[in-house]
Design a protein around this nucleic acid. Structure first.
Length: 385
RNA sequence: CGGGGCGUAGCGCAGUCCGGUUGAGCGCGCUUGGUUUGGGACCAAGAGGUCCUCGGUUCAAAUCCGAGCGCCCCGACCA
């Protein structure tokens, strides 16, 4: 990607409304833009980060045997009457009356919808167990949205639901999801703790939450629940067992705040100059910085390295703007790209500099050895995780 | 929803107390030309505003009064 052709609106100063570090950096690095309280656009760089996280989640969920589907955000409120949650969720739900006079809601979560699907399609013990999940936008009219995307009214969530024959099966699914979550958060570069939690409106007997470390008090980034028979009984989701008995399905549900992870990662990975993305999450792995765009030698080498990395499937952006070196350095640090390749005076010795964002270490590398060096850094990082 | 703060150019702010040479300004950013190019360069010339909105007071309102809207923070609340 060429920086000059891309859209990265960085800012020197954060708006005064931003107080937490992730909020400030998300805006300064041009990742998000506020439309209304708790309602944000993901700008191109922010979207890339979101997609990286989504894909990590997908990979790990799929490995665990979970199956992706996509449910609608719009739901008839009648389903919520069945589960007796319409009043419990209360004003957190965004509701409206459609032109036919039916009350609809924007889904804050999807236990009702998934249970409705399961009760209509799952009839036999032979079809169980099964875990279904989706990555989808949720709507909650929060009492107080805050810290930008940490508590938003519209946010991206991965929600999974397990369906088992009995309690033992539920325990197994639950533990499988717990292990999967640990893998996901580790791959996202998050330090976190797991603790027993209140089940709240979601219900069930037992739940644990994953809390990311950081200065910001919120984050909770994941929450897993043993729902048991709560929904299957109220919504009549039964299966026919081997002994020809009709039995309720044991359920569990498992949420990850995908967009909240973005903020959580920043809260745990930054310095005074900006974001420090983990390799696995960064919108671009490498930022090539030609020190002077009027120096044809520098420009040529920069483009050569850019094309080389690109053709080797390394995610790379080249800062080809006609800006001073200082501006490019500052933006590179602010946006948090893990590796900066600085193309400057040293090209006369056929060398350039590779700087690691995390520790600031700069290594001079021969131009024709850059690809190998970048690959070795990636290798080291993957071993570390 | 209770408490607190804020609303003036894209961002950060001054001006508001004490209404009138402040024909609404500053820094950054933006445009054009030139000089620059190793940590947010310099010179010159420019563009950009319903001073949140509506109403009131007044000869005169960014400034005073009233209502409303929006945003942020604390609390309660919350997958």
């Amino acid at each position: 990607m060429k920086w000059s052709k891309y859209f990265i609106p960085t800012q020197k100063q954060a708006p005064k409304e931003a107080e937490t570090i992730s909020h400030k950096l998300l805006i300064r690095a041009g990742l998000i833009d506020k439309l209304s309280a708790g309602v944000y656009t993901y700008l191109p760089l922010g979207l890339k980060v979101l997609r990286k996280i989504e894909n990590i989640i997908r990979e790990e969920m799929n490995k665990a045997g979970a199956i992706e589907l996509l449910m609608p955000a719009l739901q008839p409120s009648s389903l919520w009457k069945e589960s007796e949650r319409l009043d419990k969720m209360g004003k957190d739900m965004i509701r409206f009356i459609d032109r036919h006079g039916r009350e609809m809601i924007f889904g804050p979560t999807h236990e009702e919808v998934i249970t409705d699907i399961i009760r209509r399609y799952i009839k036999s013990w032979k079809q169980l167990p099964i875990i279904l999940y989706q990555i989808q936008t949720k709507f909650r009219d929060e009492i107080r949205p805050r810290f930008a995307i940490i508590r938003a009214r519209e946010f991206l969530m991965k929600d999974a639901y397990s369906f088992d024959l009995d309690e033992k099966g539920l325990d197994k699914s639950y533990n499988l999801m717990k292990e999967t979550y640990i893998k996901i958060f580790k791959r996202c570069g998050l330090n976190f703790t797991i603790r027993e939690a209140e089940s709240g409106v979601i219900g069930g007997k037992f739940s644990e939450e994953f809390v990311a470390e950081g200065e910001c008090s919120e984050l909770e980034v994941g929450h897993i629940f043993k729902l048991g028979l709560e929904y299957s009984k109220s919504m009549k989701a039964y299966f026919l067992d081997k002994d020809n008995q009709e039995k309720p399905i044991y359920m569990g549900c498992y949420g990850i705040g995908v967009s909240r992870i973005v903020a959580a990662i920043i809260e745990g990975n930054y310095d005074k100059n900006g974001i420090i993305w983990p390799f696995s999450i960064s919108p671009f792995l490498v930022d090539i910085i030609p020190i002077n765009m009027t120096d044809s030698g520098i420009v040529n080498i920069s483009e050569k390295v850019y094309n080389q990395l690109k053709s080797n499937n390394i995610s790379v952006i080249i800062d080809d703007r006609e800006e001073s070196a200082g501006v490019k350095f500052k933006d590179a640090d602010l946006c948090g790209f893990p590796i900066q390749i600085i193309v400057g005076k040293k090209i006369k010795d056929k060398k350039l500099e590779v700087k690691k964002r995390k520790d600031g270490e700069i290594v001079e590398i021969a131009i024709d050895k850059v690809l190998d060096y970048i690959n070795s850094l990636v290798e080291l990082e993957s071993v570390r995780i």
